[in-house]
């Protein structure tokens, strides 16, 4: 699902990384800027200075912006910081991707939302109250939860989370991790990649593989599986 070879960005380097279907991978970035740049390169928002990026079997360099948008529509992307549209409520944010890409009818989306809320242990009544807020007035968990729900509501082939857990209380963080595991277990053809800032949460996440981004000029640890 993800194949990266000799990637060189402005902030980091990565020798090799592959996330096949069924994999629950973590990518450890040394800084927030590295994590952000990694996601930009992985999803084709920027081109790497060197190396190749293949996503869902396609080389991003060969695609135009429309084709890249269509490819990204098959993915689920969640980030806590800057991951939501500020003038929409959390509920509108959650539905935005699915409604834009016309994933399913409203009733089907609502049913799926209930399943996802159950996975992350978020009581429906409490969640629906939170959905009326804007991102600015929401708690970190509510923002992270909304971003996670939006990413998964469209049943993506690949889930990519960018620094989703920062600032979350341990129990809330565990709920989102367990929910992500449940999502992965539902269909073995799916893949997940969690981009973490620092390796503090690697043990808690228990990924099937871990890749380390190294700061440019510091090539001590390229990657390990």
């Amino acid at each position: 699902m993800i194949e990266l070879h000799e990637i060189e960005g402005a902030h980091f380097r990565l020798a090799e990384a592959a996330v096949p279907a069924g994999e629950f991978a973590a990518v450890v970035a040394p800084t927030v800027a590295c994590a952000r740049e990694f996601v930009d390169l992985l999803l084709g928002l920027a081109a790497p200075r060197g190396g190749t990026v293949r996503l869902l079997g396609q080389s991003l360099a060969a695609l135009d912006e429309r084709a890249r948008l269509a490819l990204r529509a098959r993915l689920g992307y969640a980030a806590q910081a800057d991951g939501l549209v500020s003038h929409l409520s959390l509920g509108e944010n959650i539905l935005l991707g699915a409604a834009y890409h016309r994933r399913a009818e409203a009733a089907a989306l609502d049913a799926r939302l209930r399943v996802l809320l159950g996975w992350c242990g978020w009581p429906e009544e409490e969640a629906r109250r939170a959905f009326k807020q804007t991102p600015e007035s929401a708690t970190p968990f509510e923002r992270a939860g909304a971003a996670w729900l939006r990413a998964l509501l469209g049943d993506p082939e690949l889930l990519i989370c960018e620094d989703l857990f920062s600032g979350l209380a341990p129990d809330r963080r565990r709920r989102l991790i367990h929910a992500s595991v449940a999502f992965q277990a539902e269909d073995p053809a799916r893949g997940s990649a969690f981009v973490l800032v620092g390796d503090r949460l690697v043990e808690e996440l228990q990924p099937t593989s871990v890749f380390y981004l190294s700061l440019r000029g510091d090539f001590r640890a390229e990657s390990s599986a």
């Binding site: 928002l45 490819l71 992307y77 800057d82 549209v85 003038h87 890409h101 939006r150």
Partner: peptide, 24 residues
Amino acid sequence: ELGLMRRQGELRTLRLIGIAPFDY
């Protein structure tokens, strides 16, 4: 509002979820 969205990285978010900022 548009300037603030740009400043807060929301245009990037839209593109990352497959939405063309121009269209939306």
